[in-house]
């Protein structure tokens, strides 16, 4: 995946069964963002692989004050890349599901 400066990882082990997964996101390189975030903490959240889109979550992070609206796309892309990898792994492990 492209290095967006925003890192997204699984916050718990993925057993491949739940549609809702816990993810952790943090800024690795603030220079890649248009506006430097106020906090440099890791944000943990749940994401539903079936019902939600990464862009929706990114928008909620902007509305919650974690990121500036000009960075909503880069945050959404970072989440989307990680989610795509998780879904690809699930499909490899258990084809036909997910």
């Amino acid at each position: 995946a492209e290095d967006t400066g925003v890192r997204v990882e699984l916050a718990e082990e993925d057993n491949g069964r739940k549609s809702s997964i816990a993810l952790r996101l943090w800024v690795e390189d603030a220079k890649k963002l248009k506006v430097k975030p106020k906090d440099n903490g890791a944000i943990e959240f749940t994401f539903d692989l079936e019902k939600e889109t990464p862009e929706d979550v990114a928008q909620e992070m902007v509305e919650s004050g974690f990121f500036h609206e000009n960075d909503v796309k880069i945050v959404g892309k970072s989440i989307r890349d990680r989610v795509a990898l998780i879904q690809w792994r699930r499909e490899r492990i258990c084809p036909g599901h997910g």
Partner: peptide
């Protein structure tokens, strides 16, 4: 370690905790 919880109006819960230094990229 201070942990902050932010609940978005849509109901999603964001839990903020410090990033361990080992996970920060060298700048």
């Amino acid at each position: 370690i201070a942990v902050t919880q932010v609940v978005h109006s849509a109901g999603r819960r964001f839990i903020v905790s410090p990033v361990p230094e080992s996970r920060l990229k060298d700048q």
